[in-house]
């Protein structure tokens, strides 16, 4: 019996937890931003404004499901589901704790990279199908940004892979019992963190959205739950990237005294907070500056890190 129930509990537990946390993060982010910006943030609905999430959900669900006449309708409807689906699938390979996790893939890391690559179609297709110039510009920016940043996103992780000798995320965590990879792989961590921000389209890399330039970028024409899916998808990707950084660089569930799940959650939430802090603090670079930064700084850095790690590993053999 348990052979069926335990994986099922894992699957639904993680699925529901991820979606709920992402929804809760819409409240958490606003509260944190409010805290840093000398203002209360949403604090009216329920204790500490916690039920704001419910209020927002009700609003989004009952809003008119509007599709503009000029849109490419099938693509327009499909686009927001892509980001939700791929991000949730990405959670499948995350090892939350020794016993918790959906699937133990040998190529877990590659699976994650594949999922995050597919996610960009959501933004591009949404931007294209809206048939709106702002959305189109947003979609274009998303395409260019992802192409540039995925290159070194993958490369930055190869140092970790070399050190642990595996693409399997559980084995990578286990390999960190001696010490977290953030210390030997600090450059890799930095590069991946920055690429991760770009991947989840968060400020300062929110150019596809860039509300001050493109009103709302790729989701200008979206409303109701379709917009909600983009919205939750963004938070899902923030959590996903954070939990992946936890797994790869911060020793995953490893830690003294507390149960492994708690360690994992603590580390992940710290990273999520860092994402939000970045948004509160930084201005947005220009599109061409972002590209230059990617190709001229981050890519060489990732390559140098790869070379150095490889060299040291060979030397030690």
């Amino acid at each position: 019996m348990s052979a069926v129930w335990i994986p099922l509990a894992n699957i639904f537990g993680i699925l529901i937890a991820a979606v709920l946390l992402a929804a809760l993060l819409t409240w958490g982010e606003r509260r944190l931003l409010g805290f840093w910006q000398d203002r209360p943030g949403p604090n009216r609905v329920g204790p500490f404004g916690l039920l704001q999430v419910v209020a927002d959900m009700i609003k989004l669900f009952f809003k008119e499901d509007f599709v503009p006449r000029f849109a490419d309708i099938p693509v327009f409807v499909l686009a927001p589901t892509v980001v939700m689906a791929t991000m949730l699938l990405g959670f499948a390979v995350i090892p939350v704790a020794p016993q918790i996790g959906v699937i133990d893939l040998n190529v877990g890391l590659l699976f994650f990279l594949a999922m995050s690559s597919i996610a960009v179609y959501s933004v591009m297709l949404g931007g294209y199908a809206s048939n709106n110039k702002y959305a189109l510009l947003g979609g274009l920016r998303a395409g260019a940004q992802t192409v540039s940043y995925e290159v070194f996103m993958g490369l930055s992780l190869m140092g970790v892979v070399m050190m642990s000798g595996s693409f399997n995320l559980r084995e990578i965590v286990q390999a960190q019992t001696e010490g977290w990879f953030i210390i030997p792989q600090f450059v890799g961590f930095l590069v991946f963190f920055i690429a991760g921000i770009a991947e989840s389209h968060r400020l300062p890399f929110d150019l596809p959205e860039a509300e001050h330039e493109l009103t709302a970028g790729f989701h200008t024409e979206y409303s109701g739950m379709k917009f909600g899916m983009f919205f939750v998808g963004e938070y899902l990707s923030v959590i996903l990237i954070s939990s992946l950084i936890t797994t790869l660089f911060l020793g995953g569930w490893l830690g003294p005294w507390l149960p492994p799940v708690v360690w994992f959650c603590l580390k992940t939430s710290f990273l999520v907070m860092l994402f939000i802090l970045m948004r509160a603090a930084l201005p947005r670079p220009r599109y061409d500056q972002l590209m230059q930064f990617g190709w001229k700084v981050m890519l060489p850095l990732a390559l140098a890190n790869l070379l150095l790690t490889g060299g040291i590993l060979l030397w030690n053999q």
Partner: peptide, 9 residues
């Protein structure tokens, strides 16, 4: 230019 917080202060 994309900086969110100063305006609140």
């Amino acid at each position: 230019v994309g900086q969110m917080s100063p305006v609140f202060y």
